[in-house]
Design a protein around this nucleic acid. Sequence first.
DNA 1: ACACGTTCTCAGCAGGTTCTCAGGGAACCG
DNA 2: CGGTTCCCTGAGAACCTGCTGAGAACGTGT
Lengths: 225, 225
Amino acid sequence: MRVLLVEDEKDLAESIRRGLTNEGFVVDVAHDGVTGAWLAVENPYDVAVLDIMLPGKHGYQILKEIREAKIWTPVLMLTAKDGEYDQTDAFDLGADDYLTKPFSFIVLVAHLRALIRRGAPERPVTLTVGSLVLDPVRRTVTRQGSPVALTPKEYAIVQYLMRNHDQVVSKAEILDNVWDAAYEGSDNVVEVYMGYLRKKIDTPFNTTTLTTVRGMGYCLVSDER
Amino acid sequence: MRVLLVEDEKDLAESIRRGLTNEGFVVDVAHDGVTGAWLAVENPYDVAVLDIMLPGKHGYQILKEIREAKIWTPVLMLTAKDGEYDQTDAFDLGADDYLTKPFSFIVLVAHLRALIRRGAPERPVTLTVGSLVLDPVRRTVTRQGSPVALTPKEYAIVQYLMRNHDQVVSKAEILDNVWDAAYEGSDNVVEVYMGYLRKKIDTPFNTTTLTTVRGMGYCLVSDER
DNA sequence: ACACGTTCTCAGCAGGTTCTCAGGGAACCG
DNA sequence: CGGTTCCCTGAGAACCTGCTGAGAACGTGT
């Protein structure tokens, strides 16, 4: 089992390398992002461990490069709890798993085994609901192939709705998941944004996928009509 | 986000419960396996945390039970490092993730978030009474496959009746379970709504499932005729 | 400083939903 | 059969919810 480890703290990298080797993995280590990305593209690893904070390049950037090169090696991200990116972002960018530092070595091994076991699916990392496609890596949304320009808030809402497509989501849920906890306004913002979104992802295409469920919330249905 | 925590060490359970509540989760705690399994089957949790060492029942037995009940709530197992089952077993037993004690609280939260995000693989969580089907996730009701549009109150009543199908439920029970405690009107509302419902779920389909039991209440029968 | 895009608030409207009431019927009892 | 009780139903009033246009506030880049 070949593992790529990209970690700039040399001590930590060395101790992980030694531990994984003891567990029977074959480990390649890169101490910076450029080398890491290159190794990942050139060699068939079973799994890659990517630190998020790297000199020069962000872990995210490396991941992006790897994915754009159509390499679907499962990636586990190492994130710092106080980092500027919170954990949810790691998934958005196509990571398959993540651990927050500090983590126990045993947990790391378990997660790697799980990732390897699951394997690398031949998948483009996009969300698809009917003819609506969202690419988290490029941060783009298309309907019927045509690109749709969305503002950050709109994008966040669509993403949340697509993750929960064909389910009713309440305005409160949307507020919880798209707005930060500090927001103290009324539900009405959500209604307003639904109006914006309909004008962008439904009206121009004569579709009706963003439906209102009175008294409950909204539902993004995959069945277009 | 609702979490079920099954852990017999009361102190640990309480401290986890408190921490998760602070993180915005809604937490139910069970101190033994029997209660835990029952809760897991009866309620729709987003994720469950299961200790592997429990009085009476093993964690994996509980897991087995809830999976057999077709409940696909993601499960995170808590294993002891020196336990008779080592970590790899947890995956083999159908757990979606596990942590080895002692674990850091931050790691626990991160793992729960990851599990919730990944979500339950499939959930055919529908209520069915005869040809009447209610899907709580989509908030839809169908009879003989045709969708039936219901208002929030109507929907709530149907849901309650379906949960208690083939039993007589009194108007008072319906009032208690569908209207909030502040309601001070008469029983007549229920009669009115039964009229509405019959017009929507029985009359158009030539069925008679919403029957009146004079002096007692109403009964939703599964036998259509 | 200015133009622009984005976010958010507000108020009014339209239509759906809830509930009350009163009259008519159906079931039950002696 | 007559009286009583219980249930059904149509009409309508009060209420609530969600949609929308206008515009203010804010930040960003020029």
